[in-house]
Design a protein around this nucleic acid. Structure first.
Lengths: 103, 103
DNA sequence: CAGATTCGTAAGTCATGGCTTACGTTAGCC
DNA sequence: GGCTAACGTAAGCCATGACTTACGAATCTG
């Protein structure tokens, strides 16, 4: 169940913008921190969470580390949300049917 | 951007199980609390968050309140995750293409 | 109307989490 | 071998959030 850690990781707005930018184009930690109002260590900590949730993977090149978006965890999260969405829809149509039954 | 509050709401495991059960079959607050290891007021507080995120809606009947899953916010969340998933996939295929370009 | 149900809210406690600065580590460069 | 650049990690601070118990409000019931 990796969608759980993905969900927890994506609940933080700063982490979402980091993932969104990294998903658009892979960047180094310094490049990410440059555009954000937080310190570079803070970015490192966020990247650690994203990495543990398998939303991101790192590629070491020299002393720098380029972070890429990882689609695997996003795929699982997508499946979970999609499933929840469908059951919610189903429960709704069931309720409507039950409502019509009464009339 | 209601997917943000939905994401924050779903980051809590207890809130996820509440939503999952309510999505399966609508229940009252007491019925929900009965199956969970937390107090009834705690369930009320979770339902408040879920309600503000529009993941759930309440139907008052007598002194009881039946909670249903609301598919609207889940739909938006679904769209967001789907979008992120696709861009992550695209960035990956771009990286592969770029890699092949070098060879 | 009085009591009982069902629930939301207030207040307080305790753990978690996001941020900072300080420091240690690793890899390129002269 | 030093110096610098680019990181990760440790420690500490402070706000947030997930609980609890206590209480009040609304509705049904006899």
């Amino acid at each position: 169940m990796t969608y759980e850690s993905a969900l927890a990781a994506l609940s933080d707005p700063m982490r979402r913008t980091i993932l969104e930018r990294v998903a658009a184009t892979p960047r180094s930690v310094g490049e990410i921190a440059q555009d954000l109002p937080i310190s570079r260590p803070a970015v490192s900590q966020h990247l650690k969470v994203l990495k543990e949730a398998e939303l991101v993977r790192e590629e070491r090149v020299g002393t720098r580390r380029i972070y890429h978006a990882d689609s695997a965890a996003l795929g699982e999260l997508r499946a979970y949300v999609d499933h929840m969405w469908r059951t919610a829809l189903g429960a709704f149509s069931d309720a409507v049917a039950e409502e019509n039954q009464k009339k």
